[in-house]
């Protein structure tokens, strides 16, 4: 197992290296002078010259990449030309909001997806199964920004049930930063009002992110429950007189979780890219909105950093998923121990 993990990590490092080379290459070969593009047409020739030297744009590509890689390995991602601050400072400010959003939406979709999936799988071909199937068809076909707009229109504008944008009301100060998650920080600081307000603000963006995910989650759980219900061991349990409920929750849930967990890496990829759109609609001051802003402003250092952060996060999630799967499925664990 440990050998497997080491191999996975080596592979991850290689992939991230390749990714950085690729994205750095695109950032440097794009048409036009990157320094001129970054500063805009109003900048003087001198400013452009200075930036060119700062970013080593006058050197050859390998030299540029080498000096960039060296500073990245020292934890320096360069300066954002848009915010005029070090990219790492920006990331520290914006990342927690997106992580909170993604985790919250993940929680929602896991609970709702599992419950509907189990019910639909257990009561196969019932009206509930049909309804959840139809809903899931629509759920995966709606682009995340459209979901966000529909929810915003219904819950914020028509029902006036949730706030429209942001993480907190403008009049409120964020709680003292410990985790960076407003709900948890508010609870830790004992400021219940803030925690509640933060919860209200996160509901719609998280729900918009969750819709497609719930649909997928439900479908996968449904089919694995339905499949496992046909297995001999379930029949054996029934014959022994074990109640239906404990068969489902004690024996069926774990094997049915395996497909769910194994696609979690992909789920994460969907969540993070959908967050790009949802954060824009809800003006969520997070990493993804920052990413969109720097992309629209051709902020090269920040774009490269943003893509790499996502690459690192994606890789980490995949490694964790592999390890969790090995623990859930003894067959995979054994195979890896032998291999």
């Amino acid at each position: 197992m440990s050998r497997f993990i080491v191999l996975r990590l080596l592979h991850t490092i290689f992939v991230l290296f390749g990714l950085s080379l690729f994205i750095f290459f695109i950032a440097r070969v794009m048409p036009g002078d990157p320094a001129r593009v970054a500063l805009g047409s109003l900048a003087t020739e001198e400013q452009v010259q200075k930036l060119t030297e700062q970013m080593h744009l006058d050197k050859s590509f390998p030299v540029q990449y080498y000096s960039w890689l060296k500073s990245v390995l020292h934890g320096n991602l360069g300066k954002s030309l848009y915010t005029q601050r070090p990219v790492t400072t920006d990331l520290k400010e914006y990342l927690p909001a997106t992580v909170e959003l993604i985790l919250f939406s993940f929680l929602i979709s896991l609970v709702i997806g599992q419950v509907t999936g189990i019910l639909a799988g257990y009561f196969r071909n019932s009206w509930f199964d049909g309804l959840s199937r139809l809903t899931s068809y629509v759920g995966v076909a709606i682009p995340p920004f459209a979901v966000a707009i529909f929810l915003l229109l219904i819950f914020s504008y028509i029902l006036k049930f949730t706030p429209v944008v942001g993480r907190l009301s403008l009049t409120m100060n964020p709680p003292p930063q410990i985790t960076g998650f407003f709900i948890i920080d508010g609870l830790i600081a004992g400021q219940l009002g803030i925690a509640l307000e933060a919860l209200k603000h996160i509901l719609l963006p998280a729900a918009s992110l969750a819709v497609a995910h719930i649909a997928q989650e439900g479908r996968i759980t449904r089919s694995s429950i339905a499949e496992n219900l046909q297995k001999d061991y379930v029949a054996a349990h029934s014959v022994y007189g074990i109640p239906r409920r404990s068969i489902i929750f004690k024996y069926l849930l774990k094997p049915s979780l395996i497909p769910t967990v194994s696609i979690m890496g992909l789920d994460f990829a969907f969540l993070i890219s959908n967050a790009f759109l949802v954060e824009v609609v809800f003006m969520w001051p997070g990493f993804s909105r920052y990413a969109v802003t720097v992309m629209l402003n051709k902020d090269l250092n920040a774009i490269v950093a943003v893509v790499l952060v996502i690459g690192v996060a994606f890789a980490m999630v995949n490694v964790i998923v592999d390890i969790v799967i090995a623990f859930l499925d003894p067959r995979i664990r054994l195979r890896r121990r032998e291999g």
Binding site: I23, I26, N274, A291, V307
Partner: peptide, 21 residues
């Protein structure tokens, strides 16, 4: 391995970055 590199980031994100640049 080249395929792995391209799949290391969700397609929407990289497509966004490239179109933007």
């Amino acid at each position: 391995r080249i395929t792995d590199i391209f799949l290391a980031v969700p397609p929407l994100v990289l497509a966004l970055a490239i179109t933007a640049m």
